[in-house]
Design a binder for these strands. Sequence first.
DNA 1: ACAAATATTTAGTTTTGTCTAAATTTTAAT
DNA 2: ATTAAAATTTAGACAAAACTAAATATTTGT
Lengths: 218, 218
Amino acid sequence: MTLSEEDYIKAIYHLGKGENNIVSTNEVAEQMKTKPSSVTDMVKKLSDKGVANYRKYKGVCLTEYGQKVALTLVRKHRLWEVFLVEKLNFAWDEVHEVAEQLEHIKSEKLTDSLDELLGFPQVDPHGDPIPSKNGEFKKAVKKLLNEVPVGTSGTCVGVKDSSAPFLKFLDKNRIALGDTILVLEKEEFDGSLHIQVKEKDIRISDQIAANLYLKITE
Amino acid sequence: MTLSEEDYIKAIYHLGKGENNIVSTNEVAEQMKTKPSSVTDMVKKLSDKGVANYRKYKGVCLTEYGQKVALTLVRKHRLWEVFLVEKLNFAWDEVHEVAEQLEHIKSEKLTDSLDELLGFPQVDPHGDPIPSKNGEFKKAVKKLLNEVPVGTSGTCVGVKDSSAPFLKFLDKNRIALGDTILVLEKEEFDGSLHIQVKEKDIRISDQIAANLYLKITE
DNA sequence: ACAAATATTTAGTTTTGTCTAAATTTTAAT
DNA sequence: ATTAAAATTTAGACAAAACTAAATATTTGT
């Protein structure tokens, strides 16, 4: 599998939302920042190789095998992201570009040893689940913090309100993107929450919770 | 710099033995496992880019800039080798192929953070010195253990005698390729040595020492 | 249902890095 | 000093992956 082929496989996989939906030539072209005609050429090739199913004018999806390749790439990408954040102190938003390169390194032993070094992490710094060696993995959904049940744990991945006062609040309370948040308790009366962030407990109002996005794996 | 260009730069660098000697088209072709005509094409391009100096029928060497690029590649290669051995428990002889891929990853931050994670190592698992961030580094020489002065420290990189009894001896005394050996003391009378390997002291005869290659950085 | 708009494919080029075969230059041997 | 051998370059071709422009298929709005 060449570098370019791998990039197409990943694009088809992600556009299909892991469900192996059929995706259109134009969608792939936009994702890959190439022209639709280039996509046509490539998906024909991937089809010939048994990686994708392509029907003229109808779109493309991955074969069983193609999905396996995609999952391996996703696994490698996310493991490297964890490595960069945990071991090399990269920030949450600095990892993607480098992981895009690292995911193409070919060595099963490398991937598995890395997994072990990192303690077999379940999610990457963006809260997205890491497929296991044999390709199993849970799906992640993004929800507002006030909408998840007590006991839920997830990764903080975004804010709905990005006003200065709100960001200031988060900063003051040491809540940052990429942090793992656990919902300990919910107050019936006003919907306020008791949560755990970075080993510390804090209480936040319903309004705060309604503006924080959490990524959770079901 | 493309992947292929980087490979040529490295080949020219290594064939020139770090001395920036002029190397021939044929030598490069053999090293790269390509044909001489392909080399001609590529060195012309590298010349145009200011990376190499090429004169028809005369051979090619790197420019100042080219040497800098080469050293960066060598630095990355060797740091990744240390990483693979130290952090992922790769064996001494399993690292090269993977490092060949990893050395092409483009991220200065990654390289420097890796360097830090590894504790700024001076040599790779083969005993070869790792260039510093700004390209300085010592040269390594390979010598027989009985030829180095007391106080010398180096990496065990090979044997002269590869007979079963000798290899058995090394195994029994826990001396393996890749180990760091420090010469503590030399007996005037019979030339036997007192050495330190893996935190342990042992005494070995002159004959043993005369069959073990050490790589030392001066 | 049909024309217009949109999406997709085809055909023909380009660039990068490779190759083979032929031509040329350099080196080595007498 | 010639000539044979070896090394190197040139010329022309190919495969991969991209592009543009033109042709064709599909979808949409009325």
